[in-house]
Amino acid sequence: MKKYSDMYRDELFQNVLPFWMKHSKDEECGGYFTCLDRQGNVFDTDKFMWLQGRQIWMFSMLYNNVEKRQEWLDMAEHGARFLQQYGRDSQGNWYFSLNREGKPLVQPYNIFSDCFAALGFGALSKASANNSYAEIARSTFENILKRSSNTKGQYNKIYPGTRDLKNFALPMILSNLSQEIEDTLDRSVVDGLVKEIVHEVMDIFYRPDLGVILENVYPDGSFCDSFEGRVVNPGHNLEAIWFLLDIAVRQNDEMLIQRLVKIALDVIEYGWDKQYGGIFYFMDVKGAPVQQLEWDQKLWWVHVEALVCMAKAYQLTGDNRCKEWFERLHEYTWKHFRDEQYGEWFGYLNRRGEVLLELKGGKWKGCFHVPRGLYQLWQTLNAEVKVEKKEIITT
């Protein structure tokens, strides 16, 4: 597997990061452009807070973990200054989007803006001597926990009491966020939160009878036979599993590692398009018609996160099934998503694997999943497989 390590490292530093360094920085108004076409031209100047926070994190993380390059720190602080000045309302909630100059466009209805602001400022606090960055990360994280039971607050359009559902997205993100910014938080808070997150994912959202992690369940973890309750997002499953694999390694929990790898193998088999290849975006766990019209598209982040998951699973267990899936995913993603001519990766393919949109960034795609995945793969694939193949538990 080491043969792939240099490929992913070179892709990160020679093809992907240069694209964002060259095209995304708004020198006039601050922050980053994310709506970039294939060549890197800006086609819209709106700024989305979760993509701004993610890009701050990306360059801060590289500065902290790879090399103290001043250009990376400058890039991160460029975005941070914009967010500090314009990103929050008077209660400290992060807006969803701003116009180019920093005036609010969409209210802070989405807690994920807060999650990625905390992620970005937490990483930047390690790289910079500016103490305000750590305080922003802490206060934002505290606000996330306060809002966690009702993430949309006054903007929630669901009528209460009829079909109250828990959503998988927040515990999934917190499983990674709590580890990323633990240096700025109280250790006991992080330990307690991680324990609760593992419980939620493995005992509430994961259904052994179905073999997948559901996107929505009733608060007690029971199944909701509805559009919302039946939906499965294989990409979310696989991304969450590698987050939890990192937690299991930190806790030296071999049993959890084995359980997670079994789920990963079940999910990738379930989500793989047997006819055209690639992973479906959405599925219905009962095989009913899926309500998301984009259900059969093949998305960049789904495949990048699946690659990371299978690489980590193989590195930790030596199970050849994980290696085989990694190689199949590698062949598919490098053939269909990578843009050798202009840099970066395409984001959206149709079911047959043909490019639907030539954009490199937009409202949802920014400087995050591709470079983070390339970094994780470079690091993971550069390590020896730690153990010989073990029998994956089946209960």
Score class of each variant (00 low, 15 high):
V304E: 06
D284E: 12
W325N: 09
E327M: 14
P234A: 06
W334A: 11
D284M: 02
R321A: 01
G278P: 04
K298Y: 12
D209S: 03
C224K: 08
L299S: 07
I263W: 00
D225Y: 07
N233S: 11
W334V: 12
Y218D: 03
N320Y: 07
N237P: 06
A248Y: 03
E324G: 14
L265H: 04
Q297K: 04
T333A: 08
L245Q: 14
Q292W: 07
F227E: 13
L214Q: 04
A248S: 08
Q315R: 02
V217M: 07
I268H: 00
F223T: 08
I279R: 00
G278Y: 01
I263T: 11
N237H: 14
A248K: 13
G287C: 01
Y332C: 15
I263N: 00
I241Y: 01
H303E: 04
K274T: 02
G277M: 02
V231D: 14
V217G: 06
E324D: 12
W325S: 08
Y332Q: 08
L265E: 09
D225R: 05
Q258K: 08
E269Y: 00
E305P: 12
V232D: 08
L316G: 13
A240V: 09
H236P: 09
Y276T: 15
V232C: 02
N233T: 11
N233K: 10
K298F: 00
W272P: 01
Q291R: 05
L260I: 01
V290I: 02
W295V: 15
P208W: 11
F223K: 08
T333N: 06
D273N: 04
K262Y: 08
W325H: 13
Q275A: 10
H330G: 11
V308E: 13
R207I: 03
D296P: 07
K274D: 02
Q297R: 03
N252P: 11
Q251K: 02
H330Y: 05
G287S: 11
M255S: 12
E327L: 04
W295I: 09
F223E: 06
T317P: 03
E327P: 06
C224S: 01
E239R: 01
E327N: 05
V217T: 15
V267A: 08
W242P: 00
A240I: 15
E239G: 06
Y332N: 10
F282E: 06
K298Q: 10
M310P: 06
R328H: 07
E294S: 05
A288F: 04
Y218R: 02
W300M: 10
R207C: 05
Y276D: 01
L329F: 14
G235Q: 10
P208F: 10
A313E: 15
E254F: 07
N233H: 07
D266W: 11
G229F: 11
Y281R: 15
V285S: 02
F280M: 10
Y314R: 11
E305S: 06
V261H: 00
Q315G: 09
E228V: 04
T317G: 03
P234T: 01
P219E: 13
A248C: 05
V267I: 14
D253P: 08
I247Q: 04
A264R: 01
C322I: 09
M255H: 09
S222E: 14
I213E: 02
I257H: 09
L210T: 07
R321M: 15
L299Q: 01
F280Y: 04
V285P: 01
E254M: 14
D253K: 03
D296I: 06
G229N: 05
I213D: 04
E269T: 10
Q275Y: 02
V231I: 02
W301T: 00
